[in-house]
């Protein structure tokens, strides 16, 4: 857990964002306290607190005094919008750059995208029972 190249608090925030996106953490659901988080994953409570503070600033979590941290209403929608916006910059753009580098014409890429769109099952493995 948390073995990536980024600082640990960044990885913690990513994990919680991913859980909200996937619906594992519902809106208005309480998240683990800093202490629980720290002892469960054996990390410094300050590190966990830094991650949570960042998520509060982003509007993913909010704090209820004396109760703890909860997933903010609309957090999933905001994260989805954010990720959709970043999808083109961070996922598609490098893929297209790579295609250009390899000399794959844009039309081929477009044909590939359109070709798989109707069913999403045109490529092999998923058709097998």
């Amino acid at each position: 857990m948390f073995d990536g190249p980024e600082p640990i608090y960044v990885q913690i925030a990513q994990m919680i964002r991913a859980q909200v996106l996937a619906g594992e953490l519902a809106e208005e659901e309480q998240v683990m306290s800093t202490t629980q988080f720290a002892t469960t994953f054996r990390i410094n409570p300050a590190t966990a607190a830094k991650a949570f503070a960042g998520l509060v600033d982003e509007g993913v979590l909010y704090k209820r005094r004396g109760l703890g941290m909860f997933v903010a209403p609309g957090a999933r929608e905001r994260l989805l919008a954010e990720h959709r916006r970043r999808y083109f910059d961070e996922v598609l753009a490098p893929a297209l750059a790579q295609a250009e580098l390899l000399g794959i014409p844009a039309d081929d890429v477009a044909a590939y995208v359109r070709g798989r769109r109707p069913t999403g099952t045109t490529t092999d493995s998923k058709e097998r029972p």
């Binding site: 800093t34 410094n44 409570p45 300050a46 607190a49 503070a53």
Partner: peptide, 8 residues
């Protein structure tokens, strides 16, 4: 923020 030193 339990890790911060309280200004007691």
């Amino acid at each position: 923020m339990s890790a911060q030193s309280s200004v007691a």
